[in-house]
């Protein structure tokens, strides 16, 4: 199978595999695509004739819909497969699912899967482009890319910026992708959470660990607040949600005590009153809804680049074809 070479390679599995230059080219490509979603007719023919499968083996609303909008606004034909109501629940293995999809001659797969490494596994076995929409606790690259884009919108320069990721680092693919992406772009990265939810040895990745949220807030310029999965309480990682909010919650009094104005991100969906208080989520520090808007543009950029589009032609591509 021959394809036009993409500046990203065949797949987008994780930001760990990308250079800073590649990450910046995705962000730069996303800029012109932002405007498409603001039009009355939100559609350009960039991916006309391409077939994309959204293979979601884990429940997802926001990411799946964001990808679907991105695909449709670029005129791709899309099919959604979710774990419930598919052959997956009938016991079909991932490799068989992949081979069957491939046999129907598709162009791209967007995969969400509960196991770390599942996206790489799929990418190594099919010639289609594979985009990782979250694999276990490994990576969620498009989420981190939209976070980076949103931070850049407000802080302009990522190099040297102090960003702290707060919450369940251990189980979070969002955390890993953000760490890899931010470090590639020269940001300083901190993580903060109860030590039950901070992986052992994470300092070796080049991040700073804060045990208290107050110290993290004092250090950081940007906070990326992760969702606390409610099952973590049953798993014994935190004694109670109330206590979690008391010691690790991002609250207005804590932000007001900070030495500078912080930018607050959250990948959603939020547990209001647990990891983030409502007055923060809805307040002046929050850029949470802008993240969602940027998510569509970033995903359009990734789809465009993997399909062989050139970053410098993205502006022209909006008007028609691959540019």
């Amino acid at each position: 199978m021959t394809r036009e070479p993409s500046p990203l390679g065949k797949d987008l599995i994780g930001l760990e595999e990308l250079t800073g230059e590649q990450i910046l080219s995705i962000l730069d490509t996303a800029e012109p695509f932002k405007e498409i979603s603001e039009r009355r007719i939100k559609k350009v023919p960039v991916l006309r004739g391409k077939t994309i499968v959204n293979l979601f083996m884990e429940p997802s609303t926001r990411t799946r819909i964001s990808f679907e909008f991105a695909e449709k606004r670029l005129s791709a034909d899309t099919v959604n497969i979710s774990a419930s109501g598919s052959s997956v629940v009938k016991g079909e293995t991932l490799v068989d699912t992949a081979r069957n999809l491939e046999a129907m001659r598709i162009d791209m797969v967007v995969i969400r899967h509960g196991s770390s490494g599942a996206a790489r596994f799929l990418a190594d076995r099919i010639p289609s482009n594979v985009i990782n929409a979250g694999d276990g606790a490994h990576e969620h690259p498009t989420q981190a890319l939209l976070d980076l884009l949103t931070i850049r919108d407000h802080r302009h320069e990522l190099e040297g910026l102090k960003v702290c990721i707060v919450g369940d680092i251990l189980h979070s693919r969002v955390a890993r992708s953000n760490i890899f992406g931010l470090l590639r772009l020269g940001a300083e990265v901190g993580v903060c959470g109860p030590m039950t939810l901070v992986p052992a040895g994470i300092e070796a990745l080049g991040v700073r660990v804060f045990r208290r949220i107050e110290e993290a807030i004092e250090w950081a310029e940007v906070l990326n607040v992760l969702r606390l999965q409610l099952e973590r309480m049953q798993g014994g990682f935190v004694p109670s949600l109330r206590e979690y909010n008391r010691f690790f919650g991002v609250t207005m009094p804590r932000l007001e005590a900070a030495p500078r104005d912080l930018l607050v991100l959250h990948p959603g969906p939020m547990n209001r009153g647990v990891e983030i208080d409502s007055d923060v989520a809805d307040g002046p520090h929050s850029v949470i809804l802008q993240q969602v808007t940027n998510g569509v543009a970033v995903r359009m950029a990734v789809l465009y680049l993997l399909a062989g589009g050139a970053p410098e032609r993205a502006e022209a591509a909006k008007k028609g074809g691959m540019g």
């Binding site: 276990g136 606790a137 490994h138 890993r176 040895g201 070796a204 990745l205």
Partner: peptide, 11 residues
């Protein structure tokens, strides 16, 4: 459990 597991996101 170590750096590789932290990177790969495997418990």
């Amino acid at each position: 459990e170590g750096l590789v597991s932290a990177r790969l996101g495997i418990r």
